Amino acid sequence: MALALPGASEVEYRGEPWFQVGSRGFACQSRGQIIMKLSSAHQELLFEARPDVFRPMIAGALRWSFVEIEQLDADELADLVREAWTQIVSKKVSRAYFDAA
């Protein structure tokens, strides 16, 4: 799903898959959990509304989301992967992608 997005590639980080565009990551697996870079406002909403599925992952100044993906349907997971990707690509790239879809 992540690799279908423009510019996305998969690298290995500490033995785990990491999805990125250039050198900027947007989703990774860590110790059996998925971590995604979601928008700040959306993260806060999800942390409050669905704490069983979404939890904060804080590393210094970074605030990402732990996501229990087995509790999501395929459409919601796809939406979240695209959202994470849009957090690191330029607006020009994301607009072109969504306009073509």
Rank of each mutant, 00 (worst) to 15 (best):
A8R: 01
G22S: 03
L46W: 04
D52Q: 12
M57Q: 12
F47Q: 10
W18E: 13
K37W: 05
I35K: 06
Q43N: 09
I58T: 13
Q33Y: 07
A78M: 04
H42Y: 12
G7W: 03
I69E: 13
E10Q: 05
A74G: 14
G15A: 02
E68Y: 07
A49Q: 15
L45A: 13
D73S: 08
L45Q: 15
A49M: 12
G22M: 02
E70D: 15
D52K: 11
A4Q: 08
W18Y: 06
L46F: 06
A78H: 15
E16R: 07
Q71M: 09
D75M: 14
S23I: 03
L5R: 02
L72A: 12
E48N: 12
A8D: 02
D75E: 15
W64S: 08
S23Y: 01
P56M: 05
L72N: 10
P17R: 01
E48M: 04
P56D: 09
G60H: 13
P56K: 09
L5K: 01
L38H: 04
E16V: 06
V67P: 00
A41T: 14
E12R: 10
A78C: 12
G25V: 07
P56E: 15
G32W: 07
A8Q: 02
G7E: 09
W18C: 10
Q71D: 07
F66V: 14
Q43C: 10
S39V: 04
R55I: 08
R55K: 14
E76N: 08
L72F: 06
A74E: 15
I58Q: 06
I69H: 11
D52P: 00
G25T: 09
G22P: 01
A2M: 02
C28G: 10
K37E: 08
D75F: 04
A2I: 03
E70G: 10
P51E: 11
A2P: 03
W18N: 14
Q33G: 02
F54W: 08
